[in-house]
Design a protein around this nucleic acid. Structure first.
Length: 143
DNA sequence: GGTGAGCGG
């Protein structure tokens, strides 16, 4: 008997488990829209990986070391605040090839890093940050 | 950071 399954499960898995617990009197009509894809839990396969669940102490080089075990990491970065310099608890890992990125996800997703369970998935495609003439042209609206 | 879901520079 396991004591506690305190290990955080992947969000995609949790989302499905909670979908069956509809005890609300107002049950939404079963829309036959399985092919509509209202939300995208995971982006399309790419060499860029989004890693979340990192410890505040986890640094860029630690992230690079951890993901280098499953593929050739081109570059890794832990996102830190611009002014405070502290880690935000997530980062990005860029593999040289797409197959290495896939191995990196399967090898590091749900694993421990610096005492925390981390989540590795494909990063979302982003618009080019090189907007000519104006630096205040953020893409408002998130997909 | 003592914040714990997230998509950077």
């Amino acid at each position: 008997m396991a004591l506690r399954s305190a290990v955080a499960a992947p969000r995609g898995l949790v989302r499905r488990l909670f979908s069956t617990t509809s005890t609300s009197p107002f049950i939404p009509p079963p829309i036959h829209a399985a092919a509509q894809a209202p939300a995208r839990p995971q982006a399309d396969p790419s060499a860029n990986l989004f890693v979340s669940g990192l410890s505040k102490r986890t640094t860029t080089e630690k992230l690079h070391e951890a993901f280098s075990q499953f593929g050739e990491v081109e570059h890794a970065r832990v996102v830190t605040d611009r002014v405070s310099g502290f880690s935000k608890g997530f980062g990005f890992v860029k593999y040289t090839t797409l197959e290495d990125a896939a191995k990196g996800i399967e090898g590091m997703d749900g694993k421990f890093l610096d005492g925390w369970v981390i989540f590795a998935e494909y990063a979302r495609p982003r618009p080019p940050l090189g907007q000519p003439g104006n630096s205040m042209t953020p893409p408002y609206g998130r997909r």
